[in-house]
């Protein structure tokens, strides 16, 4: 790939990013999923643990923010390709010289950053409404964790998008994947509270490592093995991102080839 192509791809990512934000910000479903629902979860969590809330407020904010990040990623990514098919724009996109994956990077990036706003809004709400003193233990570490979380989530989104376009049969799984990941990911309570058999499942989820890293650097809690430094979480996030990038390339190739054989790029 030469530099002018690369520049053209970056421009596509930037344009899709902006246009997608424009469309998503007025989408009630999206607003509910990434803003209202995480805030409700945060309020609920604060209410349940109201005695301890002032002390663990930052933990609850980060945790509920993670739920918004995950739900936003799951729903927008799984609909990213199917939606284009639905609007009849998938054929138009595939017919251009830009690979579909490049378009999807812009879309997933927009939805992940939009979801991140739920964490910010949660933070502001807790500070203003409840007057909790919010304090991030290790700010540089937290920012690195956040950056790696975004990388892992965006690359995960690039796997989710083609995966859910593979066949109509898998579409039903989307809803079933939302809440289990909240729990297995240890977003709002440590996975130590879960039965032992589920621990390996948590380890296989990048959102779990993201939650570990974010919790460990913000509230200092949430690490299952306190003797493991946060560096392990970061390494796992990088490893997952690499695996996702590899998988994503394969899946896009497969999905597009199938669609051109089965005539499913457009709705018939």
């Amino acid at each position: 790939m030469n530099r002018s192509t690369l520049r053209a791809y970056l421009r596509v990512v930037a344009t899709v990013f902006l246009l997608h934000l424009k469309m998503q910000a007025v989408d009630l479903f999206v607003v509910f999923t990434v803003l209202i629902q995480p805030l409700l979860i945060a309020l609920l969590a604060i209410y349940i643990q109201r005695d301890k809330a002032p002390d663990i407020a930052i933990y609850l904010i980060v945790g509920s923010g993670m739920t918004g990040l995950w739900s936003g990623l799951l729903f927008t990514s799984s609909f990213a390709i199917r939606g284009e098919r639905w609007y009849g724009t998938l054929e138009m996109l595939v017919g251009t010289p830009t690979p579909l994956g490049v378009v999807m990077i812009g879309k997933v990036l927009a939805s992940v950053l939009l979801s991140l706003s739920s964490m910010v809004v949660g933070y502001l709400m807790a500070a203003a409404l409840f007057r909790f003193t919010l304090y991030i233990m290790d700010l540089p570490g937290f920012l690195i964790s956040l950056a790696l979380t975004l990388l892992a989530f965006v690359t995960f989104g690039l796997v989710i998008a083609p995966f859910f376009a593979l066949s109509p049969a898998v579409e039903g799984w989307v809803n079933a994947l939302e809440f289990p990941v909240y729990v297995l990911g240890g977003f709002l309570f440590p996975i130590l509270m879960l039965p032992g058999w589920s621990t390996p499942l948590s380890y296989m989820l990048s959102p779990y490592w993201a939650a570990q890293a974010l919790h460990a650097t913000s509230s200092g809690s949430g690490s299952v093995y306190p003797n493991f430094p946060v560096a392990l979480d970061w390494a796992m996030l990088l490893l997952f991102s690499a695996i996702y990038i590899f998988l994503s390339g394969r899946l896009f190739g497969m999905v597009l080839r199938r669609a051109k054989i089965d005539a499913t790029l457009g709705l018939q």
Binding site: S4, T5, A8, R11, V12, T15, V16, L19, K22, M92, L93, T96, P97, T98, V103
Partner: peptide
């Protein structure tokens, strides 16, 4: 916006 988007897609 539609046209700008496709102009980008066509590099």
């Amino acid at each position: 916006d539609n046209l700008r988007y496709f102009a980008d897609l066509y590099h």
